[in-house]
């Protein structure tokens, strides 16, 4: 069989699969309505209205009802960054591979960087009131640092020791709050701070505290990862 025949058979099979998927999706989506049957979500909303009283129910699921899973996710992220740093530490030459210098870019990035950091902090702190939270805000802060790495070249660098310190301290803070919940109340990640009014900034018990720690940890980790990827040279 020649190469051309193989490619044409591939194309035919791919288009066949795609047409079947389109037909199925057409059947599903033309009947799509936004009124779902009440399932697990409404139960969770009812429990949420009684116990944690956050305006964003997803946040209370992520950090309160399934807080242990969040700890696992943070640990997975930490292990992946650990593996990357272990693999890339040995290469000697540590220059920024983006050596593109431009005054306009530098001034614009200087204007943009505080706004991005402020937006990330807003998303983290308002995680229990609006969509967003620790992971999202942390990644937004890391993308601000990525902008600085891209624009500033070698003028901007971050000490890895400080990043590691911040990351491990925030992880320790997460576990400390969880253990305090175990001491004061009866469960790991139990709520020991009084719940305020629904919809205010200082409400929801320990949920904003946990999300702040998660946000600091995620931003430090992703910044470290991007810094490793920007600075390596001659790997081939």
């Amino acid at each position: 069989m020649s190469i051309k025949q193989k490619i044409s058979i591939q194309t035919i099979s791919v288009s066949f699969v795609v047409s079947i998927m389109i037909i199925i999706l057409l059947g599903i989506l033309l009947n799509f309505t936004t009124q779902f049957q009440p399932t697990l979500g409404s139960d969770l909303l009812a429990i949420n209205a009684n116990s944690t009283e956050t305006a964003n129910a997803v946040t209370s699921v992520v950090t309160y009802f399934r807080g242990f899973d969040t700890l696992g996710e943070v640990t997975i992220l930490f292990l992946s960054i650990f593996g990357v740093s272990l693999g890339l530490e040995g290469f000697k030459e540590k220059l920024n591979i983006f050596s593109y210098q431009n005054t306009l870019l530098k001034i614009g990035v200087d204007t943009l960087f505080p706004i991005i950091i402020l937006f990330g902090i807003y998303v983290i702190v308002h995680g229990h009131l609006s969509p967003g939270g620790g992971f999202q805000g942390g990644v937004i802060i890391a993308s601000g640092f990525l902008l600085m790495f891209l624009a500033k070249g070698d003028d901007f660098s971050i000490n890895h020791k400080i990043l590691e310190l911040v990351e491990s301290l925030s992880g320790a803070g997460f576990i400390l709050i969880a253990l305090l919940g175990l001491l004061v109340t009866d469960r790991f990640l139990g709520n020991f701070i009084p719940i305020g009014e629904v919809g205010e900034l200082f409400s929801g018990g320990i949920i904003p505290l946990i999300y702040i720690f998660v946000g600091i940890k995620v931003s430090a980790e992703i910044t470290a990862l991007l810094e490793y990827f920007i600075r390596i040279k001659d790997v081939r």
Binding site: P131, G132, Q136, V139, I140, S143, L146, F229
Partner: peptide, 26 residues
């Protein structure tokens, strides 16, 4: 919207930068 926010930053920002840097190296 939570997942949409994460995907907007990671999927279009960070992961593509990581992939492009890797392609520059290879």
């Amino acid at each position: 919207p939570d997942v949409a926010l994460t995907e907007a930053v990671i999927g279009t920002g960070a992961s593509s930068v990581v992939l492009l840097v890797t392609l520059l190296q290879v």
